[in-house]
């Protein structure tokens, strides 16, 4: 590798765009923090409000409700995606035919426009003519008021996340498993381990780093979930599915509170930074190594 040299024009040309773009990252941070201390509604003028917005935020019961909802959503969805996703990878590893068809199908939810997926599920969850209730009735489960009642709406959003992202867990796990040497499996079988035990005790630990990375990505992405939920429920009914990003958006664009919106954004950005810092201890090193 070359030592940096000031004659190296190429290098500077290469890095200038990055510096320019950093303006675009640092500006928003500064701006969000700045306006978070102002009382400022759309169409109005900013009035300095001190920590007033923050007091409002931390005394707002809806804020705590949103925080709790977002966390529950994240834990439930990611937990389900890992169980289901790794289970599916287990099936994929142990079949000999049809893998290509299976992986093609699993790609679909991942590339489907999330906003559009939200709309399709909104139709499918329809209490009257929705297909979800119809298929449930076939196996003897009575129809649910999916997007109408709070708990059911919450569960619906989790189901959609599981639908969209389980394939990600499956495909990454499967890809990781196929890179392992065949002797590892054979050795474990010969040592007397069952297929399941081999998978759980020998193979999964081998792709631990990979699993950390996707766990990390899934936790981050569920915490900032917006697209599918917004087009499916709009955060409702009431505030039953108003997760952090939606809470932030609604305060800004529906209630026109720019100052308060910035306060929420500031809090959320800091929160995500903390989460990323904590979680990336293990995942980060793995990403750099990859």
């Amino acid at each position: 590798m070359k030592k940096i040299s000031f004659r190296s024009k190429t290098l500077f040309l290469a890095l200038i765009p990055m510096i320019y773009l950093y303006g675009l990252v640092i500006y928003p941070f500064a701006s969000v923090i700045y306006y978070s201390f102002f009382s400022y509604d759309i169409g109005g003028t900013p009035v300095f409000n001190g920590v007033g917005n923050y007091i409002q935020l931390f005394t707002d019961p809806q804020f705590y409700r949103t925080l709790g909802l977002t966390l529950s959503y994240s834990i439930l969805a990611v937990g389900a995606e890992f169980l289901f996703g790794i289970g599916l990878a287990y099936l994929l590893v142990h079949i000999s035919r049809g893998r290509s068809v299976a992986t093609s199908i699993l790609i679909l939810p991942l590339v489907m426009t999330p906003a559009v997926a939200g709309i399709i599920w909104r139709i499918m969850f329809d209490a009257g003519f929705g297909h979800v209730n119809f298929y449930l009735s076939l196996i003897g489960i009575p129809g649910q008021k999916w997007l109408i009642r709070p708990t059911e709406a919450f569960i619906s959003t989790v189901i959609v996340d599981v639908w969209q992202w389980t394939p990600f867990v499956t495909l990454v796990t499967f890809a990781g498993l196929t890179t392992l040497p065949v002797e590892l499996v054979e050795s474990a079988y010969i040592d007397g381990a069952s297929e399941f035990r081999t998978f759980k005790d020998i193979l999964l630990p081998r792709i631990r780093a990979l699993l950390y990375i996707i766990l990390f990505l899934r936790v981050i992405d569920t915490l900032k979930i917006f697209d599918t939920v917004y087009t499916m429920t709009g955060g409702g009914p009431g505030t039953a599915t108003t997760y952090m990003s939606i809470f932030n958006y609604l305060n800004l664009m529906t209630f026109y509170h720019i100052g308060y919106g910035c306060t929420i954004a500031a809090f959320f950005i800091v929160l995500m930074n903390v989460v990323v810092t904590v979680l990336s201890k293990k995942a980060g090193a793995a990403l750099f190594a990859a």
Partner: peptide, 10 residues
Amino acid sequence: MVFQFIVIYD
């Protein structure tokens, strides 16, 4: 069985 490829569990 012991393999040429050294098999070690994590």
